[in-house]
């Protein structure tokens, strides 16, 4: 089993994702450069956080047209699991693999802190092993994480159970004060209709070891690895 971590010029969480998978989870992990077009032998793709192509034009707008993203489109269409974290989520939105768009944080500031997540659906390969009712403590670090979708799209996301994570309080409180960026309906992560592509603003790969504040991110990678073993 091999996990691929994409590397764009300006990615800066690629090594965190590599460390999380290779050293904490103990799974074979490979960096995949943005110019690559061959994803054969790769079982799942992580699109890491950072500032791909300097966030020029819009976050993720240029990365979307990179050669590797054409290959990821095909990989996802065949049902391959793709996890986009932070800038990775932005790239998935720009590429149309996920619906909606990302606006600047409501407060116009880059926000870097621990937040709390409620898993709204465990029916994905990334969330199946998250214990029921468990509130995850995971950090966010972004300036453009204010998820936006028009009413029609939002309705579809709800109907199809595609909202996967919402920002909540430490005890699961529904309160927009715990929303770090103004995202519509406190949305922190969504999946596609086929449920194999997940985008999330928080960084599970930075919550892998309790000495660093939280190990709740492991549930997400454990879910993914389990699904690949049983697949």
């Amino acid at each position: 089993m091999t996990i691929g971590v994409l590397v764009f010029p300006g990615s800066n969480c690629d090594h965190d994702a590599y460390h999380a998978l290779k050293h904490v989870m103990g799974v074979e992990t490979k960096f995949i450069f943005h110019k690559e077009t061959d994803l054969s032998g790769i079982d799942a793709i992580i699109i890491p956080g950072g500032f791909s192509y300097g966030d020029y034009l819009r976050s993720g707008a240029i990365a979307r047209f990179s050669p590797v993203m054409q290959a990821v489109q095909e990989f996802a269409a065949k049902g391959g699991p793709v996890l986009g974290i932070c800038n990775g989520f932005q790239i998935l939105l720009e590429s149309g693999l996920l619906p909606g768009a990302m606006l600047h944080n409501q407060q116009l500031r880059f926000t870097c802190k621990q937040i709390y997540l409620r898993t709204e659906s465990r029916n994905t390969v990334f969330t199946s092993e998250i214990p029921q009712n468990k509130i995850l403590k995971v950090p966010v670090a972004h300036g453009e994480g204010n998820y936006y979708a028009d009413e029609e799209t939002l309705k579809k996301l709800i109907e199809n159970d595609q909202i996967i994570f919402r920002y909540v309080g430490p005890n699961g409180e529904n309160d927009s004060n715990y929303n770090p960026n103004g995202a519509i309906q406190n949305i922190a992560g969504i999946c596609n209709e086929s449920r194999n592509v997940l985008g999330m603003m928080p960084h599970p790969e930075r919550a892998m070891e309790s000495i660093l504040g939280s190990s709740d991110g492991k549930y997400i990678f454990e879910s993914l690895l389990k699904s690949l073993i049983t697949a």
Binding site: R58, A61, E94, P99, G100, Y148, A149, D150
Partner: peptide, 8 residues
């Protein structure tokens, strides 16, 4: 295609 994101 690129310069504007018509979702927003």
């Amino acid at each position: 295609k690129l310069l504007a994101n018509q979702v927003m």
